[in-house]
């Protein structure tokens, strides 16, 4: 436990000193600010771009447009940036040899994996919370009359999908020696989830539904209970991937 806490502190210190935390927060803060703004200004922008004789008629923007931007940005660029930032989570330490010293000092390999995963989860949580907070504030300010359903649950689903993706990432980091290998395996896992989603019966069990059904939840077109299975499976798979990472890393010859 001591090793876990000490190494977690070191990980947080590292993300701060190497500006990775700052980059994540800035990227998600930009999304948070721009989501409602784009929703509000997009119709006016399009109208101003219209040439003579062309009439563009768009419905008045609502809070749903702002949240659509939020989920689009978070699940696309947001997750891509997250995965790229964390892709060297283990490989950089192994290739440089910085971990060897600490392992020879009694740091357990289990503590290494668990503290690295915890730190990634903390950074992801802080980033998504910041993005949500800013989007929420601006949306309430720009669209005060609009109300949304299941907003917190919908964001929770997205957050949980992030946790699942980070579990896949740490697992792939123990399998490969390079950042690219780690990125490739994570990419393959996401593509596999997308392919499985083609089968309608699989959708309710597929972790990717946590990142695709968000707008449906907000607009009440999808029932909350329909995502329970995906939540349970994502939690189980995350646990399995982290446990496998620990097992593989403990057996890895360094």
């Amino acid at each position: 436990m001591r090793g876990y806490l000490v190494f977690l502190k070191k990980e947080i210190f590292e993300y701060t000193k190497t500006y990775k935390l700052l980059i994540m927060l800035v990227v998600f803060a930009i999304f948070g600010i721009t989501n409602p703004l784009i929703a509000k200004l997009l119709p006016e922008i399009l109208e101003s771009l219209a040439t003579d004789g062309v009439i563009i008629t768009l419905p008045d923007p609502t809070a749903y447009d702002a949240w659509e931007q939020f989920f689009k940005n978070a699940t696309q660029m947001g997750l891509i940036v997250t995965v790229i930032i964390f892709s060297g989570v283990l490989s950089s330490e192994l290739s440089k040899g910085t971990l060897i010293n600490l392992l020879t000092k009694g740091l357990s390999r289990t503590a290494v994996i668990l503290s690295k995963y915890t730190c990634m989860v903390l950074v992801w949580t802080a980033s998504i919370a910041l993005c949500f907070g800013l989007t929420y504030g601006y949306t309430v300010y720009l669209f005060p009359k609009d109300e949304t359903s299941n907003l917190l649950f919908s964001v929770f689903c997205l957050w949980l999908f992030g946790l699942f993706l980070l579990a896949v990432l740490i697992f792939s980091a123990t399998l490969t020696k390079s950042n690219y290998g780690c990125l490739l395996i994570t990419f393959v896992a996401v593509v596999a989830c997308m392919i499985m989603d083609i089968i309608p019966a699989m959708h309710r069990y597929n972790p990717i539904s946590l990142a695709t059904d968000n707008m449906g939840l907000i607009m009440n077109s999808i029932e909350v209970s329909s995502l329970y299975s995906a939540i349970l499976i994502s939690c189980l798979l995350s646990l399995i991937f982290v446990s496998l990472s620990v097992t593989i890393f403990r057996r890895k010859q360094l």
Partner: peptide, 8 residues
Amino acid sequence: KLCGEITG
């Protein structure tokens, strides 16, 4: 300091 904390 990091090494010392890991060592206990």
